[in-house]
Every structure is written in structure tokens, then in C-alpha cells.
Design a protein around this nucleic acid. Structure first.
Length: 896
RNA sequence: GCCCGAGUGGCGGAAUGGUAGACGCAGGGGAUUCAAAAUCCCCCGGUAGCAAUACCGUGUGGGUUCGAGUCCCACCUCGGGCACCA
């Protein structure tokens, strides 16, 4: 009998599928279509276990839907623009384009052996000029439809490297290479008008029934609709021509508790006052330091500056001081808020710090204690008692009070009810080389002019260098200088490129007609769109998906997508992440390095340290030091010739060697930049693709994060070998008994369970059922024919997960044609019906016994049998039951 | 700091409000073998007990219910996102 040999089986069947063209998507009007898409990868050059998990899930769905008779589209491409290519160029002197395409071909080589049912004929990379040229065409269409505009926005500015930094390049408010404190600087940038669609994007979430609830919730919170009010506060002494400060508030019901006004450092009034107030100017400059992330802003210490100005309370007879506060954002609301310390913890901390008054606007019923150092912030639906409310409110909820207060202000003409959204317009300008050039030209005479479509793509020049920080396009005169498309006079190209989120916001549409000379083709988009099942990481729950939803609408407006595609993803599944420990140099140990040597050496050393602070798992030896995981650099340790199995040697080395104390951070998101990416190729080499596929699908529920461990692959491999042996034995075996019905019943239950598992994205439970069925089949006392039929069904049920082995087994058992082309087995519902059922008997909710009864036995009869059981008698100990609950077919509970 | 999610044996995990721990991994015992690998069989949450069985047990503390891993409230820990990582 031959043994299971994945190495010979897998290439054979991959070739067979290729030759049969099994996975080429074709528009077939006679069949329903199914478009399954996994988020395309960034071409890092190595596939990691997260890819294997993601693409295997998609493949299971694709193969299953094909078996169900759908015409399936299952494409693959590359999200190929982005910073890592430029970083690599800077580090090694290569070119981002060469680096990227080399990575793509390497990664594709690694993906092919997985046997995923991908239509490779549709492959593209977002850095292909054919792709980004069409993206530029979209941009021009958007410009025409007024969906794009320019305005100023802040960026992270590194004052030493004289360059814009990405948020991830800002570490503790400092530039990652220079170590200089980052400043916020304004630049003119391009924006998509996504905020015009806030209401629509929010409303449409309700229609996305097959999206995870949590993703819809996250998006709704991100869009952040709020009803509030703009209230005008008159300055008691107008200054610099400014008479009023307009505050936006979602809590006007707390106006009685207002004790100060806080304006943003960038508020027009604050800026105006800077001229005559050096201290304020210095304060504002200080506020403008640090990163631009919301997190950095929120976590920064709350600081204020008293302008000395006051405003009139619009509803009460008193004045409020005007402060500049670093926590007030200019781009949300009006850049000014009123502070109500009693009912907002941040305002309270601020008030205590600067000794401002704290006044309760309301109390909880029956408790008139004034606020101390903890703000009183009950749920808006809770009833509270208002204090001296100017609109005469007494005991009511904040929810109700907000509405009534807004009405009051509107009636008095002192405020305007407003609906606002947190969602901001999407800034797409990036001051970087490796991205899609924004196809516009700046002309002294004509202003900003879109490039002509016939001149697209505006292609990236190849002759650039990365030896100086900043955007090489900016320093490239022959590329930058051009003729104005409108008047023909000398002009300059836009040197900013697009955010890579733009690339990934329409690739799903491009897959329907990847070679077209327009962004999409109507017939193809009509047939293939929408994506029926989209699968990807939860980390994309907000931005990528929201941007794509906006883009689909914008493309519809420009005639590139049908109406039905305004929501492009019918169903979404977010897989959990595969996590793995990170190995990084213990930063505490690095500090002394900065302090030694001359200035230039110090900087060099710190840059060097920042660049190589993460190690790959294969580069380290991990050990346990009194419960703390640590690691040392493998190569350096091995050079000492000491025994790595003796942990004392490792501890000693860890402590002594300056370069090698490595911290282990368990269970972190796998990330290219952190080098904690697990290499699945080893498993494939050793056991084959089917084992890797089976293992990642059986390991844990797909939506949950999973910590990668190597153990388990062995078990998966053993099981597949067992299935192979069983198939071989059944193929030439004889009858083992006559109980065909029992086997067939179990077979149908298995079909049902496996199908349910796939439909419900609970692949691990499908696999558990297949394990169980393997046991059943191995032990079944049935006729040879029935065992063969059952084995063929098992091959079919396994085929989405382990397609190569399934084909092999299918062939052994005389299955017709390719299993990849076979129909999914059907369940006979009659075979699922059981005539008798085992009922657990509980006393006070604790299981005491069980009975086996006919399925439809009536309640009274069941009750009698249950009470008579030994376990119940013992538990009751002669007492009479108070009540008996019989749930037919489920359980009996006796209340004693 | 704000928003979202997750916590069940040694491990991955299963469980329409109805027998907690299916299925797998690891471990233990046995069979087979000259021996090993491979394979097959049995055991496997904790405590007590020869056993039958009893008690405890799904991050912590409360609550709803005949019955809670599941629903509600509060908290703890971990993970994701926070608009220039992709």
C-alpha cells in the first residue's frame, strides 16, 4: 500500500486544475455568480501564517461555492505601494520598484504551492502603471464631480530631517531617525469629501446585515453623529475686531455649570492675541509640538493659558474667563468649548489645576452633594435633578434636557441646534515617492489643472535616489517640470502621491475587468459585483472599509459602478490576527549607548539601534528567567561556543553582552516592522500544503486571535495520513458488516454539520466533525459499497480544506472527474431524524440522571419516568418535588 | 485618554438559556515489534473516595431565571483601532 506523500500528490493536482482551467472566472449567464475576496497582501516578500489563514478561509468558501454550482470569482493581487519599499531603499540603496517586484515574484512563488483556487490571470499590483493610471483617471473624474478639494492640514514635521513623518515614525513625540521633537506643521493637501457622505454612510450600515455587528458599531462610532448646539458668547470687551466666541456643545443642559471658555491654540482669537502677548505665543508654540494623532493629543497633559478676557454667560447674569487649552481641537466643532467641570472629568481636572469654580448643573435625585474630585457623569437616560436651570427644568433626564435647552436657546435666538459628525474629510496627499502620483499640474496662469486623460498614466520616474530624506519627486526637475495641459506654458507637476488607502479602495472593482483601458467595464462590473464574501483582518474594520464604501459611491457617481455597488461588500468576515512574540532589544539597556562617545557617534549609534531593534524568531534563542521570557541573539551566542541548553549560560550572556539583551513581548500583532512574522514555508516543506491548510483551519475559531505555536502541525499531518490509509483500505476492502444504515445516518449528519460550519465561518467545528466521522468510518460495520460511498463523501467534505488529498482519495474510490468540479453532497433530511432521545434529568439545575425516551413522548409520561429515576430519588431524599419542568426533546428539571 | 472586542482543562477550543469541557494537541498506561518508528486500544478539569458518588469549577464580584459559559450591572486582564503602518 502506498503512503500519503504530499510532495508528489500536491503538484500533480495543481497541474490538473491548471490544465482544466478550473479556477479561471468566466461570465456565465446560466449560473449564479459568487465573488469571494480576501484582502490583498502587501508584498513583504514572505508569506506569513496570517496570509495562510486568511487565504485558506477564502479558498474554503470559493471551493465550496463552486461545488454548489456558482460561477466563482476568486482573484489575487498586490497592495504594492507604501513606505516599506522606501525604507528598504534607504537602508540598502536599492530601488523601491525593484524591491517591490522582486518581493511580488518571491511571494507568488510561495503562494502557488498552497493550492489556493485563485484566478491568477487577473493578478495585478497597485504599483503597475496600468492600475494606477486608471486610479488617476478616477481622481480626475472625482475632481470634475467636486469630490476632491485642497485645504490646509497639519502633518508631523521633523525639523532635523526636514521631512514629513508618518504617525508610526513618530515615537514618543520624536522623529524615529533624527530623535528630534516633532512639530505640527500646516501644508496644503488634497482631500476627498467623505464627510459629505457621513449621514449616508451611517444610515447604510443598517443594511449591511451580513457584516459583523462590532464592525458596524465601530464605524458608527467613528462617523460619530451628535446633536448639539452652537452658542454665541459675547466678549465683555471686544478685541482685535472679534466680538463673539462661538462654542459647540453636545451638553447644553450643563450650561449652568459652565465656569470657563476654552479655545484652541489655533483659534482665530488665540492667533490674534499672540501678536501682543509673547507668553501666549510661547504657550501656543509649545502646544503645537508633538505628534498629530488623536491618541497623542488626548494623552498629553491638559494645560491652559488665561487670556484675561471674559465673556458673558448667555443665559445667566455672570461672566466667564476665556482660556486657551491644548486639548481643544480646531478641526472639530468650532474650536471653542465651554468648560463644565462638575460634569466632565477633563474639565474638572483642568478646573482644579487652575483653581476655577466648580458648579453642579444637576444632582442625582436625593443626593445634593456637590462634586469633589470626581465628575458626576450619569448616563443621559438617567433621571437627574437640575439646579436653577434657566429654562426652568427640574427633575428629568439629560437626554430630554438637552433637547429642551436647545429649543430654549433657539427661541431666544442665542444658539443654533446642530448635527455634527466626527468623521473628517480624507486627506490623501503624501509627501512620498512610492505611491500613485496625483495627476494635476500647477500652472502660474491657470492654477491647479488636471492632467489630460490621454496623458495618463503620469508615471513615476525611475531615476531617483533616497540618500536624502524627503520626497525625491520634489528634487526631480525633469519630471517635475512640464507643460500646462490647459495653456501649454511651463508648469510644475504635483509632487505629492496618494495615500495607499486609495489604492485599496477600488481594487475589488478592478478585479472584475483587470486589463480594461477604463477603470471598470459596465458588463463585467454588473455581472461580478458585489463582492459576495469579503474576508480580512479586523484591523481594517474602520478605515479601509469606510474609505472603500465612500469610493464605491464616488465611482457610482462617475459612472464606474452600478447603483447596487454603492455598498460593495455584501458580507464581511473579519478574521482574528495571528499573534506571535516580539523580540526586541531591551531599550533600557540601550540608553547608556547614547551617552557614550562623541556627538556624531552617539547619533549614529542611536540610529543604528533604532533600525535593528527587532529580531526574527529564527535569530534568537528564547529562555525563561524566573518567569520572565528573555532571549539572546543566536549567532552571537553560538560564537561563544557555550551550551545553549544550559539556561545559566543564556542568563549570563543576556546580562553581560551589551548588544544582546533581548526583551520578549508575548502575543503581539504580527507586523513586518516588528519582525515577528512566522514563516509557514517550513510546515509546507515538511508536511505539504494540505497539512498547513488543515492545521490553520482546525486550530481556532477564525474570528479569534490566535497565538502561533508550531505544535499541532504534526497532529494534522498524522490525521491526513490516516485518512489516506483509510481510503486505500476501503478502496480495495470488503464488507465489514451489515449496519449500513448507522453509517449512512452519521454520514448525513456529518454533511449537515460540515456544511453548517462552512456557512457559518466555523471551520474549526467542520473539521472537528470530520475527525469524528473518520473514527466512525474506520470502525463502521457496513458493506464495501456503503463504506466507499461514505469515503467519497468524506473526500468531498474535506475538499475545500485539503483539496489535493481529496482529489487523490476521490480518484482511489472511483469518483468521476475532478473533485474540484464535483457537486457538493446533499443531505437527506430523513436521515437526520432520530426516534429516541436521551434526556438529562436535573434536580435544582444539577444533573442527577438521564433517561432514554421516544422523541414524541408526552410531558406527563416523561415527568413520571424522570421522577422514578434512581438519581432523582436519591437527590429528593423522600421530599416531594415542588415543580417539574419538562422541555420536550431537551431536558427535565425537578425543583425540590 | 476615547471607541470596539476577547477571557472555558497543561494547550487550541466545543456548547439554539437546557448533561460544561465535543474534536484535536500534549501527557499517562497498554497492545504490536528482537528493538524502534509507524499504527491500534484505554485513561486524562480539581478535591475526597477502593468504588458508587459527592462537592467545587467557564477572569473577579453581584443580579435575573426552574436552570447562566451564554442574559444584565460593576470591575480586572489582554488584544485591535484612533484618521500618514498596511
Amino acid at each position: 500500500m502506498s503512503r500519503y506523500d504530499a510532495r508528489s500528490i500536491e503538484p500533480k493536482w495543481q497541474k490538473a486544475w491548471d490544465e482544466a482551467g478550473s479556477f479561471a472566472a468566466t461570465r456565465d449567464p446560466s449560473k449564479p455568480k459568487y465573488y469571494v475576496l480576501e484582502m490583498f497582501p502587501y508584498p513583504s516578500g514572505r508569506i506569513h501564517i496570517g496570509h495562510v489563514r486568511n487565504y485558506t478561509m477564502g479558498d474554503v468558501v470559493a471551493r465550496y461555492k463552486k461545488a454548489q454550482g456558482f460561477s466563482v470569482l476568486h482573484p489575487m493581487g498586490w497592495d504594492a505601494f507604501g513606505m516599506p519599499a522606501e525604507n528598504a531603499a534607504m537602508a540598502t540603496g536599492g530601488h523601491p520598484k525593484d524591491w517591490t517586484y522582486a518581493n511580488i515574484s518571491e511571494m507568488k512563488e510561495q503562494m502557488k504551492p498552497m493550492g489556493w483556487s485563485l484566478d491568477w490571470t487577473r493578478e495585478f499590483a497597485t504599483c503597475d502603471p496600468e492600475y494606477y493610471g486608471q486610479q488617476q483617471a478616477l481622481f480626475i473624474d472625482f475632481l470634475e464631480k467636486d469630490l476632491v478639494y485642497r485645504k490646509n492640514a497639519v502633518v508631523n514635521w521633523d525639523p532635523v530631517d526636514m521631512t514629513v513623518l508618518a504617525n508610526e515614525q513618530v515615537i514618543d513625540d520624536k522623529g524615529w531617525r533624527s530623535g528630534a521633537e516633532v512639530e505640527r506643521r500646516e501644508l496644503t493637501q488634497w482631500f476627498f469629501k467623505i464627510s459629505d457622505y457621513s449621514e449616508e454612510l451611517l444610515d447604510a450600515l443598517d443594511g449591511l446585515k451580513d457584516w459583523p455587528e462590532k464592525v458596524r458599531l465601530m464605524q458608527a462610532n467613528w462617523i460619530g453623529k451628535s446633536r448639539g448646539i452652537e452658542i454665541d458668547f459675547d466678549l465683555t470687551a471686544p478685541t482685535q475686531g472679534i466680538e463673539q466666541i462661538t462654542c459647540y456643545s453636545t451638553r447644553p443642559d450643563t450650561m449652568h455649570g459652565a465656569s470657563f471658555i476654552a479655545i484652541s491654540p489655533d483659534h482665530p482669537l488665540s492667533k490674534a492675541l499672540e501678536a501682543d502677548n509673547a507668553q501666549l505665543a510661547a504657550f501656543n508654540a509649545e502646544c503645537r509640538k508633538g505628534g498629530t494623532t488623536e491618541e497623542a493629543l488626548e494623552k498629553a497633559e491638559k494645560r491652559g493659558f488665561d487670556t484675561g478676557l471674559t465673556v458673558r454667560h448667555p443665559a445667566e447674569d455672570r461672566d466667564l474667563p476665556v482660556w486657551v487649552g491644548n486639548f481643544v481641537l480646531m478641526d472639530y466643532g468650532t474650536g471653542a468649548v465651554f468648560g463644565c467641570p462638575a460634569h466632565d472629568q477633563r474639565d474638572l481636572d483642568f478646573a482644579r489645576k487652575y483653581d476655577l469654580p466648580v458648579r453642579n448643573a444637576f444632582h442625582m435625585p436625593g443626593d445634593e452633594t456637590d462634586v469633589g474630585n470626581e465628575a458626576l457623569v450619569p448616563d443621559k437616560t438617567e433621571t437627574v435633578v437640575f439646579v436653577d436651570h434657566f429654562a426652568g427644568l427640574g427633575e428629568t433626564t439629560s437626554q430630554d434636557a438637552i433637547d429642551k435647552t436647545i429649543d430654549w436657546f433657539e427661541a431666544k435666538g442665542k444658539g443654533r441646534g446642530q448635527v455634527k459628525y466626527r468623521l473628517r474629510d480624507w486627506g490623501l496627499s503624501r509627501q512620498r515617492y512610492w505611491g500613485c502620483p496625483i495627476p494635476v499640474v500647477h500652472c502660474d496662469a491657470c492654477g491647479v489643472v488636471p492632467e489630460k486623460k490621454e496623458n495618463l498614466p503620469v508615471e513615476l520616474p525611475y531615476d531617483v535616489t533616497f540618500d536624502t530624506p524627503g520626497n525625491p519627486l520634489d528634487r526631480h526637475p525633469t519630471w517635475r517640470d512640464c507643460a500646462c495641459p490647459s495653456c501649454g506654458k511651463p508648469a510644475k507637476r504635483e509632487t505629492d502621491t496618494m495615500d495607499t488607502f486609495v489604492d485599496s479602495s477600488w481594487y475589488f472593482a478592478r478585479f472584475t475587468a483587470p486589463r480594461a483601458t477604463t477603470p471598470t467595464v459596465a458588463e463585467d462590473a454588473d455581472y461580478w459585483m458585489n463582492v459576495d464574501q469579503y474576508i480580512g483582518g479586523i484591523e481594517h474594520a474602520i478605515l479601509h472599509l469606510l474609505y472603500s464604501r465612500f469610493f464605491a459611491r464616488a465611482m457610482h457617481i462617475c459612472g464606474h459602478l452600478p447603483e447596487k455597488s454603492k455598498e460593495p461588500f455584501n458580507a464581511l468576515f473579519t478574521q482574528g490576527m495571528v499573534t506571535h512574540a516580539i523580540y526586541k532589544i531591551d531599550e533600557r539597556r540601550l540608553r547608556p549607548v547614547y551617552g557614550s562617545g562623541p556627538e556624531s557617534d552617539e547619533k549614529l549609534e542611536s540610529q543604528f539601534a533604532r533600525l535593528r531593534q527587532y529580531f526574527y524568531p529564527s535569530q534568537v534563542i528564547e529562555f525563561n528567567d524566573g518567569g520572565v521570557l528573555k532571549a539572546v541573539h543566536k549567532e552571537s551566542f553560538e560564537a561563544t561556543g557555550r551550551d545553549p541548553n544550559d539556561s545559566d549560560n543564556l542568563k549570563d550572556f543576556w546580562t553581560r553582552d551589551r548588544d544582546n539583551p533581548i526583551e520578549v513581548i508575548p502575543s503581539a500583532k504580527m507586523s513586518k516592522s516588528k519582525n515577528n512574522v512566522v514563516d509557514p514555508l517550513a510546515i509546507i516543506d515538511q508536511y505539504g500544503a494540505d497539512t498547513a491548510r488543515w492545521f490553520v483551519m482546525s486550530d481556532s475559531p477564525p474570528e479569534r486571535d490566535v497565538e502561533w505555536t508550531a505544535s499541532g502541525a504534526e497532529g494534522a499531518s498524522k490525521h491526513l495520513a490516516r485518512v489516506f490509509r483509510l481510503a486505500a483500505e476501503i478502496a480495495d476492502g470488503a464488507d465489514t458488516g451489515t449496519d449500513d444504515e448507522a453509517l449512512l445516518r452519521d454520514m448525513h449528519k456529518t454533511i449537515q454539520a460540515v456544511t453548517d460550519g462552512i456557512e457559518g465561518f466555523a471551520f474549526n467545528t467542520s473539521i472537528a466533525k470530520l475527525y469524528a466521522f473518520t473514527n466512525t468510518l474506520a470502525k463502521a460495520k457496513a458493506s464495501a459499497e456503503t463504506r466507499k460511498a461514505a469515503m467519497r463523501v468524506m473526500a468531498q467534505l474535506m475538499s475545500p480544506m485539503t483539496p489535493h488529498l481529496a482529489e487523490e482519495v476521490w480518484t482511489m474510490l472511483g469518483g468521476e472527474g475532478l473533485i474540484a468540479e464535483a457537486d457538493w453532497p446533499e443531505v437527506d433530511p430523513a436521515m437526520l431524524v432520530e426516534d429516541s432521545v436521551t434526556l438529562p434529568i436535573q434536580v435544582n439545575g444539577k444533573r442527577r440522571d438521564e433517561i432514554s425516551v421516544p422523541k414524541d413522548m408526552d410531558k406527563a409520561e416523561v415527568e413520571k419516568l424522570a421522577l422514578a429515576t434512581e438519581g432523582v430519588q436519591r437527590a429528593l431524599d423522600g421530599a416531594a418535588p415542588k415543580k417539574v419542568i419538562v422541555v420536550p426533546g431537551r431536558i427535565v428539571n425537578v425543583v425540590a
